Amino acid sequence: MIEIGALRALRSVAALGTLARAADELGFTASAVSQQIKRLEQQVGVPVLAPAGRGVVLTPAGRAVVEATPEVFQALERCAEAGRSVAEGAARGNLRVAAFSTAIRGLLAPVLPRLSARCPDLRVHITEQDPDQALRAVDAGTADLALVHDADGLPAPLPASVTRRHVHTDVGDVVMGRAHPLARLDRPLTSADLTGHPWVTSPPGTVCHQWFRRLFADAPEDPDVRHLVDDFSTQLSLVASDRVLALIPRVARPPLGEGLVSRPLRRPPKREVHATWRRSAGASPAIRAVLTELAPRAHPDDAPR
């Protein structure tokens, strides 16, 4: 009988290219993953991996095994869901959720009290992961549900075993001190309004830095960037003390306090957030309970001005 853990290990190695990376993703040591692969080879009767430089590659037999794993995992998931359905659809047990950091802060954390009140027997375990890593975790079965955002306006490609639902549209606003000249404007801000003012922004390589650069795509000169800071709470402290502006996603925004205000943009940058889970787990009462709480809700800044 082939061990399920060995199949998960082989699939992770196939996706990541090395035993060490697969071990990090699965939470094992590289030695433990290697032993799982060796047992799988004994069970299948042929080698499934071959060395390739510092990494490994699948043999033709190993590739065939990996291509067959989705059906195996979906069948196991259906078995588990059949057992859960006996409990009259009650959400209980452990639910493993992977999400990027600002989704944890702005989407998951606020709904946990309601979820706990509705489903007292459900325990949610949250792990911070970037979207691509979170999708792999759902596909591999090391996470049950993931929150991911699109990359530069393009939805992340989904593995065949995974489906998704839109849960949030995240919008960027400009934050400033109450005494800032732009704070007196009672209308959405334009790129022309923002020209000539100093900024604190997220570092290059982040979604928010891409948003920021687009604000000035048609500007005649580069923006005056005084500070590069990844943490949004730290950005707000600089806005309060150094009269700079900051572009901050609503889902990531900490409380502003009395000295700061936010102003919307005429053409605000946006990103779509989706919940993703394995298709075979669609009947899970726990997943359905979390999706219910994550249903899109209006943000106070969406109100007409």
Score class of each variant (00 low, 15 high):
Ser31Glu: 13
Ser233Ala: 15
Trp277Thr: 02
Thr169Cys: 00
Gly282Met: 05
Asp193Tyr: 04
Asp230Gly: 00
Leu265Glu: 00
Val148Phe: 03
Leu247His: 12
Ala281Leu: 07
Ala137Gln: 12
Val33His: 04
Thr163Met: 08
Gly257Glu: 07
Gly259Tyr: 06
Ala50Gln: 15
Arg266Gln: 15
Val13Thr: 09
Gly106Trp: 01
Ala295Phe: 09
Thr163Lys: 05
Glu128Gly: 06
Leu182Gln: 04
Leu256Ser: 02
Pro254Asp: 11
Leu236Tyr: 10
Asn94Phe: 13
Pro285Ile: 10
Leu16Cys: 09
Ala283Phe: 10
Leu182Thr: 05
Pro157Asp: 00
His209Thr: 08
Thr195Ser: 09
Pro268Ala: 13
Pro113Trp: 04
Gln36Phe: 00
Arg184Ala: 15
Val97His: 05
Glu71Tyr: 11
Gly196Met: 05
Arg165Ala: 05
Leu95His: 00
Phe73Pro: 06
His299Leu: 12
Leu194Phe: 02
Ala156Arg: 15
Gly17Thr: 08
Pro188Gly: 00
Val97Arg: 09
Ala240Met: 08
Gln133Ser: 11
Leu10Tyr: 03
Gly141Val: 07
Leu107Val: 06
Glu3Asn: 12
Glu67Cys: 12
His274Ser: 14
Thr234Val: 10
Pro131Gln: 03
Ala22Gly: 09
Gly172Gln: 12
Asp173Met: 08
Glu221Arg: 15
Pro269Gln: 10
Val200Met: 06
His166Cys: 08
Val124Arg: 03
Leu76Ile: 14
Ser202Met: 13
Ile2Gln: 09
Ala281Glu: 05
Arg84Gln: 15
Arg11Thr: 14
His125Tyr: 10
Ser161Ile: 03
Ser101Asp: 09
Val290Asp: 02
Gly45Ser: 04
Ala15Tyr: 08
Arg279Leu: 12
Leu19Asp: 03
Gly27Ala: 02
Pro131Leu: 06
Ser191His: 00
Arg288Val: 10
Val13Ser: 07
Pro47Trp: 05
Pro198His: 02
Leu108Asn: 00
Gly83Leu: 10
Thr190Val: 03
Asp218Arg: 11
Gly93Ile: 09
Arg54Ala: 14
Arg165Thr: 10
His168Trp: 05
Ala32Asn: 10
His299Tyr: 01
Leu189Ile: 01
Asp186Glu: 07
Val244Ser: 02
Ala252Leu: 09
Thr234Asp: 12
Asp301Asn: 11
Gly83Thr: 07
